[in-house]
């Protein structure tokens, strides 16, 4: 390897230099350029269902929390003389757009007040149960060994108890109110977050980049929250949305049993349950709040799928690639 070797060497070096130039020149540019100009909201604009959901949820939240200012009547304002007034589409009047119920209360006003309570309970329970469950699941999954065994045994024991029975006992002790409903539902709801988090953590902690973080000298807390937790975003968002829907219904069940909200308070669940009594004569009393619950859950779902995309850079890149294929083919054709 003397005379020819230098030629081979220089030829090789030439290839190397060219490859290096190509590598430095082209890689990644188009996406990065584009990424700096696209924000969260242009992403939202592209997602029609997400946009629609966002608008709908905004209206619901606004109407719910501004209920005292916007609602035409109070939640329990009325008397038997105003009972069972039909809604506007069934020869009703503009005084009661969605009609009144058998007690004579205005359905639209009750919907607004009810949505406020429902959203508040749903958000509070998802936040409390989610936070507790995720932190415990993270610790169990990341620490492993004895910590994991003990924490998961705790979860198993709590899952094995019938939730409604515990709820009955706890509310008997605490007394029925909105705070105790939030507390009881959180107490019964955190295990599912812990289990799911632990599962994802077990998979994520084997990823080389997690090992890299540990190698570099990150403390366990940083590894858990900076490197492992983001992997959970999409599954957590999905779970939280499903739980949110379940909690709306669970709250309705508790209220139906007389263990949830007490009389002057109203929620969508309370309304749907109340409508059951007159379901055959006045089906709208159950259907209207039922439809609102469904729409809220659906909208939250669509919004969640948008969030998932926004929080995942690879997913975002996929979207971009799909949108850019048409543009790219023309450019490549020229090159």
């Amino acid at each position: 390897m003397s005379g020819t070797a230098t030629d081979e060497y220089s030829a090789h070096q030439h290839d190397v230099d060219e490859a290096l130039l190509a590598e430095q020149g082209m890689e990644g540019r188009p996406y990065e350029l584009r990424a700096s100009t696209t924000g969260l909201f242009s992403e939202l604009r592209a997602d029609k269902a997400g946009l629609l959901s966002a608008v709908f949820l905004f209206i619901v939240v606004f109407a719910a929390f501004a209920a005292p200012l916007l609602a035409p009547y109070g939640p329990v304002e009325g008397n038997p003389s105003t009972s069972s007034i039909p809604p506007i589409w069934a020869d009703g009047s503009w005084d009661h757009v969605l009609g009144t119920d058998t007690q004579g209360y205005d359905v639209l006003s009750r919907l607004m007040y009810g949505a406020r309570t429902t959203l508040l309970i749903g958000l509070a329970v998802v936040a409390i149960a989610g936070l507790f469950g995720v932190v415990l699941g993270l610790i169990a999954g990341y620490r492993g060994g004895r910590t994991d065994r003990w924490l998961m045994r705790w979860v198993d024991v709590q899952v094995a108890f019938p939730g409604l029975l515990i709820a009955l006992i706890m509310i008997a002790v605490l007394g029925p109110s909105m705070t105790s409903v939030i507390f009881v539902l959180s107490f019964n709801g955190w295990m599912v977050y812990a289990r799911m988090t632990r599962g994802v953590v077990l998979a994520a902690k084997e990823r080389p980049y997690v090992e890299a973080a540990e190698m570099v000298g990150c403390r366990p807390r940083r590894v858990m929250f900076v490197h492992i937790l983001p992997n959970l975003t999409s599954s957590l968002v999905t779970l939280a949305v499903l739980e949110f829907a379940r909690i709306i219904l669970a709250e309705a069940t508790l209220s139906f049993l007389g263990l949830g909200l007490q009389f002057p308070e109203v929620s969508l669940g309370v309304m749907a349950n109340g409508g059951r009594d007159a379901f055959f004569s006045l089906p709208r009393l159950a259907i209207i709040p039922g439809v609102v619950i469904t729409l809220i859950v659906l909208a939250v779902n669509f919004l969640a799928s948008w969030l998932r995309v926004v929080f995942d850079p690879q997913e975002r890149e996929k979207r971009f690639a799909a949108g850019a294929t048409t543009a790219a083919t023309t450019v490549e054709g020229v090159m």
């Binding site: 080389p208 980049y209 890299a212 570099v216 000298g217 403390r219 850079p313 690879q314």
Partner: peptide, 21 residues
């Protein structure tokens, strides 16, 4: 953890060893 300042690892897989986020 402090010893990590003196000894480091270069990984085999350049794709999986960098946090994509």
């Amino acid at each position: 953890r402090l010893l990590r300042q003196h000894m480091q690892l270069v990984f085999q897989d350049p794709y999986a060893s960098l946090n994509p986020r």
